[in-house]
Design a protein around this nucleic acid. Structure first.
Lengths: 262, 262
DNA sequence: CGATGTATTGACCAGCTTCAAGTAACGTGG
DNA sequence: CCACGTTACTTGAAGCTGGTCAATACATCG
């Protein structure tokens, strides 16, 4: 998110502006978590970009079962990918932060798909479904980037599967908080005390395969151990990262390396 | 797998033959689970193919922590992708069957990686790490295929995460058996009563995040309900697929659609 | 103000894990 | 051929982690 609250929620063009940010001026590209792109690459992306979608918290960017939804690059705001069982049980697969590309799985498989729901207001760049193909054809280096992004998403889900399958409740919560902290850090403005962990405990529970109640107790346990401070809508504070990492059985520090951005 | 036992385990070139199958004559391509490729595409693949690797059961194709291992297309045999925690707990992320492409995640992230271990003897086509880039550059349509394969793997892991995070033990086992059945079917020779579910109960347990003992009890429960028949090294039999699907809360039938093959 | 959604706490219980021991199948070497 | 080791599978019993149910507190919001 380009943190400063004033331009963030420009009430002007709220829904679907065909205009949107010129990709060359994209605020995300200035961040050094992203790999620099050549002007030519940005040209192509800019041309494929269909529109910009503004959203509120709680909207569905993609629905489970959509097999030809659009593709998005998250520009600002948080969301999450999820799947549900027929009786309503929901698994959050991964969280979506600025720079993440979503909709790929939907496009490529007719097998069961996932949904994407927003957690905060924000905006996303929309591409048509066939953009992927065009992109590969027009500029192979960008095709390579798409593969990269897909592989990275894959790696995150692998991590989550390891967490949910093998870690205990405390370990799970610790691991989740740590990785969210890590991923979110680049987008948080220095000292602004904004509530940048826009989750409810229910989200945490659904991401970790735990019940709400037990998630609550586990959070409390971490709190009492002085490993985390987090109240509804408040900023998450993790005073002892290495300690948390030890609890989570997570290697630390995790380095991320610069990412491609579409 | 090109099932006929005689050519399958040719003792001649057991390790790493630079020769190997000519991609144009690839036995997999004859199967109709795979999308036909143009001669040009196959040319490129054939040129990028570095060698063929024969393996026994229990070998490591990739190790956790390798950050520049090779890439493989599984040609024949079974394997699985896994991650472990420092204290030894292991999560099986997904099973690898013929046609599956492995090693992508390793290449694109320096974040924690996964290992790949074989379950049966078999062989795999090896590519150098930079093949992906070359491939994108030389033939965009193949780059598109890589993205596709990556997205599909992603979708499978999403499924597994849903299973492990939300389903009960019975549901998990049922779901796993069903999807393995589905994925393996195209590679099983009609009537050959070969043991084509080359797993131990420990593998099932590690894939589902259950203990060995409870996996055993759960299997037994399914057996008693007449939903599965499976003894060590025997062929898996699922007499009532729709029934199993109902138990698993899995939509059925699942269709797969033709896949690209590298 | 209720109304709604979220967090918190207690009590109870079950699904699953752990520990332990025994059986079956298979390969090895004497 | 059988004794033996090894690996996988079974089964029983005990107990813990985490789930369910339920009631209360605490917000924010119209």
């Amino acid at each position: 998110m380009s943190k400063d609250g004033n331009d963030a929620l420009e009430p002007a063009a709220r829904c679907d502006s065909t205009s949107g940010v010129d990709c060359h001026a994209c605020p995300l590209r200035r961040l050094d978590v992203f790999r620099p792109a050549t002007p030519l690459e940005i040209d192509v992306i800019d041309r494929l970009k269909q529109s910009e979608r503004w959203f509120e918290a709680g909207e569905h960017l993609l629905r489970e079962g959509d097999d030809d939804g659009p593709l998005y690059t998250m520009l600002e705001g948080w969301a999450f990918r999820y799947k549900t069982l027929s009786d309503g049980r929901r698994q959050i697969l991964n969280f979506v932060l600025p720079g993440d590309f979503i909709g790929l799985q939907q496009k490529m498989t007719d097998a069961a798909s996932h949904g994407v729901e927003t957690l905060t207001p924000g905006r996303a760049c929309r591409f048509r479904r066939d953009a992927i193909l065009t992109l590969h054809q027009e500029l192979p280096s960008l095709g390579y980037d798409v593969t990269w992004l897909s592989a990275r998403e894959n790696a995150w889900v692998d991590d989550n599967l390891l967490t949910v399958g093998q870690r205990t409740a405390v370990e799970r919560v610790a691991a989740l908080l740590l990785t969210l902290q890590l991923r979110a850090a680049p987008f948080v403005a220095g000292d602004q005390a904004e509530p940048w962990l826009p989750l409810t405990q229910q989200h945490v529970a659904d991401a970790l395969g735990l019940s709400l109640v037990h998630t609550q107790r586990t959070l409390q346990l971490l709190r009492r151990r002085g490993l985390c401070e987090w109240k509804r809508g408040q900023r998450l504070q993790l005073p002892d990262l290495p300690g948390l990492a030890r609890v989570a059985h997570l290697r630390w520090p995790l380095s991320l390396g610069p990412l491609p951005l579409l």
